[in-house]
């Protein structure tokens, strides 16, 4: 649940619909429903914790030009957020 608090604080949901977060459910980015069972991150990187943590903190360094911005969170916070995303299984 620490991860959920990080996600709320950073306002990831301004762009993503994220199960467990009632509001907002932004639509600029993809829904993260079922993300734990997804094969790829952003269609390019295999869905592994280390890559996800890097991606969450600084997506533009991995996919230049993406609308997913570098987010102002620490490495530890990114790990917590990733842990939360890995609880989001297909329903």
């Amino acid at each position: 649940m620490r991860g959920k608090a990080v996600i709320e604080k950073a306002a990831c949901a301004a762009c993503h619909a994220i199960p467990g977060i009632k509001w907002p459910q932004g639509e600029l980015g993809p829904s993260l429903d079922g993300f734990a069972d997804q094969g790829m991150i952003a269609g390019r990187f295999s869905n592994r914790p280390d890559l996800l943590v890097r991606y969450i903190r600084n997506a533009p360094s991995m996919t230049p030009g993406t609308a997913m911005p570098a987010m102002p969170i620490s490495e530890g916070e990114a790990r917590d957020a990733a842990a939360y995303l890995y609880t989001l299984h297909d329903r």
Binding site: A10, A11, A14, C15, G26, P69
Partner: peptide, 29 residues
């Protein structure tokens, strides 16, 4: 309603309608 950071700013400008439905600023997708 949102903390003011880069992500919220881009998210608001790009699609404020998903965040605050029916507000008077158009989405810029």
């Amino acid at each position: 309603i949102l903390p003011n950071n880069r992500g919220a700013m881009i998210g608001w400008i790009g699609n404020s309608q998903a965040i605050k439905p029916a507000n008077r600023m158009p989405a810029y997708t």
